[in-house]
Simulated assay, not measured.
Amino acid sequence: MTEMTSVTNGTMGRVAYARIAPNEDLVIGVEKLCLAHGFRNAFVRGALGSLVDACLGANDDKFIEVKGPAVEIVSLAGEVRSDEDGAIKAALSGVVADPQGEIYGGLFVAGSNAICMTLEVTLEEWLPAGD
Rank of each mutant, 00 (worst) to 15 (best):
K67E: 11
T8N: 07
D60N: 15
L92F: 12
D61H: 08
E72D: 08
M1I: 10
G130T: 08
D131V: 11
K89G: 01
Y17I: 10
V15S: 06
G68Q: 06
S75R: 09
S75P: 00
R19T: 15
Y17K: 14
E72P: 00
V109P: 01
A58R: 15
C34L: 08
V80N: 05
G46W: 05
R40S: 13
P22I: 00
Y104A: 09
K62Y: 02
D53N: 15
W126N: 03
T5V: 12
K32A: 15
Y104D: 07
D83P: 02
A129M: 11
G106W: 07
T118S: 13
A129W: 07
L119M: 14
M12D: 10
E24T: 04
E72V: 08
G46V: 07
P99Y: 10
G86I: 04
G78H: 08
A54N: 07
G46S: 08
S6Y: 10
C55D: 03
P128W: 09
G111E: 05
V109Q: 12
E102Q: 14
G46F: 06
L107M: 09
A42G: 12
S82E: 13
A21V: 07
R45C: 13
S112N: 15
S82V: 00
G111Q: 04
Y104E: 04
F108C: 02
V95D: 00
R19H: 04
G94F: 03
L107V: 13
A110L: 02
I73R: 01
T11E: 13
L123M: 09
E31G: 01
L107W: 10
E120P: 00
D131F: 07
M4R: 14
D60E: 14
F63A: 09
P99G: 10
V27M: 11
T8F: 10
N41Q: 09
D53G: 04
G29D: 08
E84R: 14
K32Q: 15
P99T: 09
T2D: 03
E102K: 15
N9D: 05
P99C: 10
M12C: 08
A47I: 02
G46K: 05
W126M: 12
V15Q: 12
I64H: 11
L107P: 00
V30E: 01
F108I: 03
A77P: 00
A47T: 03
C55E: 13
A90D: 06
P99I: 09
L76I: 04
V7F: 05
D131W: 08
G106R: 07
Y17M: 09
R45I: 01
V15E: 12
E72N: 08
T122P: 00
V96R: 10
S50K: 02
V71F: 02
I88G: 00
D85W: 05
P22C: 02
V66F: 05
V121A: 03
D131L: 11
D83T: 04
A18Q: 14
G13R: 03
V66L: 05
T118C: 02
